[in-house]
Design a protein around this nucleic acid. Structure first.
Length: 424
RNA sequence: GAGCCUGUAGCUCAAUGGCAGAGCGCCACACUGUGGAUGUGGAUGUUGUGGGUUCGAAACCCAUCAGGCUCCCCA
């Protein structure tokens, strides 16, 4: 008896049905990206730890990444995100790239977190970025790509919304309230947690981090002011561009969106499922104009977002938006009558394949009943039977499994006959 | 990293200290050249794992693993 070895905690196994769902998301991601002219790229799956330590809190990197020592004694980590790799790749070819650069990627990432609904330790993420443009219209384009994805998978604006804010606008508001520079990070955290705390607890927390009563009241007024964007020229242009791009229905200004990341410098946005059971962001991103120079490149404005496949997958599943899984790539089963006729069935299958048809042949002689049952469970459309009678006359039985009709046809007409059924 | 909940047949779940069950699925037969529907029969099993308490544990206790919810975090 061998002992059972579990998969690593937080990893996922993609059985064909889950693989189909993953590839469905991948295909939609590709379509939305390419519709706007973005090119696919990828970086290494393992990176030196320093790549992340440079711009993230070291504590965080050590705690939430899969880091290990390689045989040469260097600390390497399974990539927890793509942006630092992107920044390095861009910086390395900054002189020869044709800006603005529009790149997208869909690949695996790892974070050492406690797994729960919508969050695993191994996940796939769509990253899409536009580098070399600092206009609000560039931000609008990224938001439009996100909205296009939502629309393409069938998530309506009633179901999914993208909430937008601008850090510069919030900074201006903090200035007006006289919130000191060293309290800005705490204030951002405060805003981020607003939905998670009771009103009283939130007030208390606000006073705790050093806001006075007047600043708290002022902050509340700002967070309740959904017309605040009109004070921002950049957001005004952004919303005008979104209207021109035809995605206004998906986008709303929300002063409560700040995002945890330190590196955002302007526009920030997050998409949520507003009617389902998952409260996590579908995707999120924003403008990060300082990142390139932070990693040693020439200053370069950039904007982008990322979407994990776990939350998106749950939402699509819940909304019934993942197409029906086709259990077999082949819609045709060539049955095997008996051991003597097996070579003829194999040969028939081979002929159909060389004609370009996906065809499966039963791998051993067994009762036809069993073979038909197999074809039925695999949801196949056509079964072929080559028995002694047919073999003698150079025929094959073509059976339409949907209607139950069947006919004997000449072997060289099988392909056409099958095709007819599949196209019906 | 912290707290709470859950783990029983392939799946969904019963059984609350006293013979481990149901539905669905599976297999066989009715049907020796044909799937779905129906009927009849059959097998579902280390009750996550390891220990303990008890005459007796799926149930109670401890540990551990996995999943979920919440906090933390979300580069």
């Amino acid at each position: 008896m061998s002992s059972k070895i579990n998969s690593v905690k937080g990893t996922r196994e993609f059985y064909p049905e889950q693989m189909f769902a993953r590839n469905f998301i991948y295909a939609k991601v590709r379509a939305a990206s390419e519709l706007f002219g973005y090119q696919e790229y990828d970086g290494p799956f393992i990176e030196p730890l320093e790549l992340y330590a440079a711009k993230s809190g070291e504590e965080l990197v050590k705690k939430q990444s899969f880091t290990f020592e390689d045989r040469g004694g260097d600390l390497v980590t399974l990539r927890p995100e793509l942006t630092p790799s992107l920044a390095r790749m861009i910086a390395a070819k900054q002189g020869e790239l044709n800006f603005p650069v529009r790149w997208w990627s869909f690949g695996p990432f790892w974070r050492y977190e406690s797994p729960q609904r919508g969050r695993s330790r191994e996940f796939f993420q769509w990253n899409i970025d536009l580098l070399g443009a600092d206009s609000p219209e560039a931000d609008a384009e990224l938001i439009a790509v996100g909205a296009t994805f939502l629309r393409s998978v069938g998530l309506s604006p009633e179901r999914a919304q993208i909430f937008v804010n601008d850090r510069r606008l919030m900074e201006a508001q903090f200035d007006a309230l006289g919130i000191a520079a060293d309290k800005r990070v705490d204030a951002s955290n405060l805003i981020d947690r607003r939905g998670k705390m009771t009103i009283a607890a939130w007030d208390e927390y606000a006073l705790e981090i050093g806001l006075d009563r007047k600043q708290l009241d002022g902050l509340k007024a700002i967070l309740g002011d959904f017309e605040l964007w009109r004070q921002s020229e950049s957001l005004t242009r952004l919303f005008a561009a979104l209207a021109a791009l035809g995605v206004s229905a998906y986008v709303k200004f929300d002063p409560n969106i700040v995002r945890g990341l330190l590196y955002y410098t302007g526009t920030v946005f997050e998409a949520f499922d507003v009617s389902g059971s998952v409260k996590r962001a579908i995707f999120g991103g924003g403008r990060y104009d300082n990142l390139l120079s932070d990693v040693g490149g020439q200053p370069l404005p950039a904007t982008g977002f990322a979407m994990g496949d776990v939350v998106a997958g749950i939402i699509l599943q819940e909304a019934g938006l993942i197409p029906e899984f086709q259990s077999s790539p082949a819609q045709v089963l060539v049955t095997v009558f008996d051991a003597n006729l097996l070579p003829q069935s194999f040969a028939l299958a081979a002929e159909l394949r060389s004609a370009g048809l996906n065809a499966m042949v039963y791998p051993e002689p067994t009762k036809l009943q069993k073979q038909f049952k197999f074809a039925d469970k695999m949801k196949m459309k056509v079964a072929l039977v080559l028995g002694p009678d047919e073999a003698e006359q150079g025929l094959a039985v073509v059976k339409n499994l949907t209607t139950g009709e069947q006919a004997q046809v000449k072997k060289d007409a099988v392909f056409e006959s099958v095709k007819e059924i599949l196209q019906a």
